[in-house]
Amino acid sequence: MINELITKARLKNFMLIIIGSVLYAISVNVFTVPNDLAEGGLTGFSLILFYLADIPPSYTIFIVNIFILAIGYKFLDKKTLHYTLVANAIISVMLLVVTRYQFIPETTLLAPIGSGIFMGAGIGLIMLGHGTTAGSDIIAKLMEKYLGINIPTGLLMIDVFIVLPSAFIIGAENAFLTLINLYIQSKVIDFILEGLNPRKSFFIISKKHVEIAEAIENQLGRGITILDGRGYYTKERKDILYIIISRREVLPIKRIVEAIDPNAFMTVSHVQEVTGEGFSYLSQEVQAERITEAEEEWIEEQRVANES
Rank of each mutant, 00 (worst) to 15 (best):
I158D: 10
I216A: 02
V64F: 12
T178C: 07
D137V: 06
T178E: 02
T99L: 08
A70H: 01
Q102H: 12
G231I: 06
A121T: 03
F168S: 12
S308T: 15
R255I: 06
Y73R: 12
I90E: 03
I63H: 04
T132N: 14
M1W: 09
L42C: 06
A167N: 12
M119Q: 09
A294P: 03
Y59E: 01
K207Q: 09
L156A: 06
P152S: 07
L179K: 07
E106T: 15
V33A: 09
I245P: 01
E4L: 05
S269T: 15
V188F: 06
P34I: 00
S283Y: 15
E4M: 06
I117G: 00
K78N: 12
N150C: 03
F203L: 07
K254Q: 09
T133D: 04
I149L: 09
M119K: 06
T292H: 05
R247A: 10
S21M: 05
D137C: 07
E39P: 03
V274M: 06
A38I: 01
S280A: 09
T234C: 06
A134F: 08
L282R: 11
G135R: 05
A215M: 02
A87K: 02
K79N: 10
I126A: 08
I123Y: 01
I299Y: 11
I19V: 14
L42Q: 01
K238P: 13
A111R: 04
G171D: 01
G129K: 09
I68V: 08
E4A: 12
S283H: 15
I63W: 01
T153A: 12
P105L: 10
L47W: 08
S27D: 04
K145L: 07
E173K: 12
I291F: 13
A134G: 11
L11E: 00
G171E: 05
I104N: 13
G131C: 07
I71C: 01
I192V: 07
L69H: 02
L282F: 15
P252C: 01
M119T: 04
S201T: 07
F67L: 13
N29Y: 08
N13K: 06
A259D: 09
P112A: 13
Y59V: 10
Y101R: 07
R230K: 15
T43P: 02
L52V: 03
V188E: 09
H130I: 02
I104Y: 02
V86H: 05
Q272F: 09
N150I: 01
R222F: 09
R248N: 11
E289S: 14
L81P: 02
S269C: 15
A264S: 08
I205R: 00
F279D: 10
Q272P: 02
F75I: 13
T60R: 00
E236A: 15
D228K: 13
T275D: 14
R237E: 15
S283A: 15
A70W: 00
G154Y: 10
S115A: 13
L76S: 08
N88K: 00
L227P: 10
L109C: 14
L81T: 10
E144H: 07
I205P: 02
E258P: 05
P262E: 01
R222L: 10
I245V: 14
A89C: 10
I48K: 01
V30I: 08
R255H: 09
